[in-house]
Nucleic acid binder design. Structure first.
Length: 132
RNA sequence: CGAGUCGGUCAGACGAUCGCUUCCUGGCAGCGUUUACGUGGUUCGGGGGGAGGAAAGUCCGGGCUCCAUAGGGCAGAGUGCCAGGUAACGCCUGGGGGGCGAGAGCCUACGGAAAGUGCAACAGAAAGGAUACCGCCUGGUUCGCCAGGUAAGGGUGAAAAGGUGCGGUAAGAGCGCACCGCGCGGCUGGCAACAGGCGUGGCGAUGGUAAACCCCACUCGGAGCAAGACCAAAUAGGAAUCCGUUAGCUGUGGCCCGCAGUGGAUUCGGGUAGGUCGCUACAGGCAGGUGGUGACACCUGUCGCAGAUGAAUGAUCGUCCACGACAGAACCCGGCUUAUCGACCGACUCACUAA
């Protein structure tokens, strides 16, 4: 419990693992952060930390090398984020043009969108709005 | 040194910190239990491995798996000079023919048009068992032209029915001769493709196109790891309607035969899309030897070289330089094709200078 600040690993507990996990986020997201190159969806979970899922469609990023690069960068970013008091399941969707960004640009975009997402979720009060 | 041809190798390097995955190993929870011990994990250490020459396009060929022991015929598809290599190929090697280049070399779907069918705009006199516009020659003539001979010359066209030369002739013509080309028949060399002589036919019949239909020869059963197997669970079981009962239906794409199985179709309602295996050790890499012109084969030694599954192989910083291209495994191999910043090695050709 009480996932520590120095917890920077990224095992299977930190990832969305099957279709159920994904559709839970898609069907009723608590928060969203949109950018012209990507979209973040989030839903509170009852676990000890954030979990990340990635949807990088071939339609939006043509080359496999770029798709892998985006996934790695996104994982790296979420790995290094400190866990907040309200853990979430987050899904990152790629949009067109992400493949053209370099690593530094992508990182700064992720930083910005993540902050937006955190503000959103703290506003919508994690404890009470458990179900609708 | 300059220009070029062919073959091969590499695919930024080093360090620090933080991660991912897999294997080995040690500790520590948990579980089984007679202390031993076994098992074992969203746990903590230590150590090892972790994308490519194209991983790509999915264009061929295999292995493997299932369908039915994959058997006969049709249809369909593919291949197409010869001989080897190989598990196999549309690949590779060697050879032959043709073409390009000064050369090293490179390119080449390269079987059949005297089985048949089709196609060829325009131009042109005539385009396939053709034809005579101008011209040339002979004869006649009312001097306008007419009859006949001819295919050398002009003109048209992508292509005009052997070519060049000499003889010949009224002018011409394989009409005759020489050489070349072509057809046919021996001979010699070669496993063969084919090459080289020799003889023969005057060549009024063999024009082109077969990545047009077609003919001939040879090859091919189908589907793919979401193949397929197993585990707890599930496919169960149920209701309604319609069709059928020596048939029909099902069985990987077509049809017929053969073979195997069996009532079938639709709708309603219900349930699954968890885990393990397949999954990486091999037509395997490297070194040496033997045989072969070579592709390659055989022998000996040695090495262990990714196995993910919402999908690992990365991020940041520092230093250096020739400032880093194309690009990411998904069952596995052999090829082909396409993309690609550059660096290096070997063999060879041409030109120039020097010796």
């Amino acid at each position: 419990m009480a996932s520590s600040i120095a917890d920077h690993n990224f095992g299977s507990a930190k990832r969305l693992l099957n279709a159920k996990d994904y559709s839970r986020v898609f069907d009723d997201p608590d928060a969203r952060a949109s950018h012209r190159n990507l979209l973040l969806l989030a839903k509170h979970n009852d676990r000890t930390g954030h979990r990340l899922g990635l949807v990088i469609a071939k339609k939006h990023v043509r080359l496999a090398v770029d798709r892998n690069r985006i996934k790695r960068l996104a994982r790296e970013f979420f790995r290094t984020q400190p866990s907040t008091e309200s853990p979430m399941d987050v899904v990152l969707l790629a949009r067109g043009g992400v493949g053209k960004l370099d690593n530094a640009e992508l990182s700064s975009i992720l930083q910005l969108q993540w902050q937006k997402l955190v503000r959103h979720t703290t506003k919508t009060e994690p404890g009470t709005s458990q179900d609708s």
